[in-house]
């Protein structure tokens, strides 16, 4: 199966750099420690909207570990780079689904990330500040899987921008910033001011941060999972529609 092969090639490419990635994990863990320290300093002994220092520690740890599955992906799934080198044009001509091919490649990188980024960081946190196990394994894993898929779609859409502009990095940076702020990576949305909570509730970015984290911690359930699934379906349709538009654009311009 071509998609499995594409994913396996991606895993092999990543494996060459696993030691470098361990250093990166250490740096990423420092990000987690900084957030935890900031929240402990902010909250002290108080609790706000069900959020206290102990909860925030668990929230940050889970959020930081799964960031590698839901948010940190190859720039535009490699589409902008492929536009530059011409491999995108070749991929468009292949008798396989374009979105499926790029998603499969990234899925390979994510599978690697699960083993060599998430797992070591979870162990590192478990040894220092603790790493919580999910309240419900099926729900928790489903939340993370949906988060990864939504993240994949969002990164793909940002990458597609390369068909219309040279500066796809722009779309990518926008996605990154929106995921950070609206996704609830660093701040649980419950703490947000009311108006912002409304924005968050209606954004897909939440599916990459707050939803999987809260489900893992047992603070959210099937309802939020359904919302994430809805976003996954909607973004899949959007990705397919825009792939068609991108394909037509290339055909008109002759590659």
């Amino acid at each position: 199966m071509v998609y499995v092969l594409a994913a396996r090639a991606a895993v092999r490419r990543e494996l060459q750099y696993r030691w470098a990635h361990m250093v990166n994990n250490l740096g990423s863990a420092v990000f987690g420690f900084v957030y935890i320290a900031a929240w402990r300093a902010v909250l002290g002994r108080q609790s706000l909207s069900g959020v206290d220092a102990a909860f925030m520690t668990r929230y940050m740890v889970v959020s930081q570990v799964f960031l590698w599955l839901t948010t940190f992906m190859t720039f535009g799934l490699g589409i902008p780079e492929g536009m530059r080198t011409g491999s995108v044009a070749a991929d468009l001509a292949r008798p396989v689904d374009f979105f499926g091919l790029y998603a499969a490649r990234e899925a390979g990188a994510l599978a690697y990330g699960l083993l060599y980024r998430c797992l070591p960081m979870a162990v590192l946190f478990a040894l220092t500040v603790g790493f919580p196990l999910p309240g419900s394994w099926p729900l928790g894993l489903a939340g993370v899987a949906l988060g990864a898929y939504v993240g994949l779609c969002l990164n793909y859409l940002a990458g597609l921008a390369a068909f219309w502009t040279v500066q796809a990095r722009w779309a990518w940076g926008l996605r990154q910033t929106l995921t950070l702020v609206l996704g609830g990576i660093a701040v649980p949305p419950a703490v947000y001011p009311g108006w912002l909570q409304g924005v968050v509730a209606w954004s897909p970015f939440r599916a990459c941060g707050a939803i999987p984290t809260l489900i893992w911690l047992g603070r959210a359930g099937a309802g939020d999972l359904a919302a994430a699934a809805g976003w996954a379906a909607a973004l899949t349709l959007l990705a397919r529609a825009l792939t068609g538009a991108a394909r037509r654009r290339v055909e008109v311009q002759g590659g």
Partner: peptide
Amino acid sequence: ELQVFTLYA
């Protein structure tokens, strides 16, 4: 990857 540890973080 080292830059994450020495610069970004």
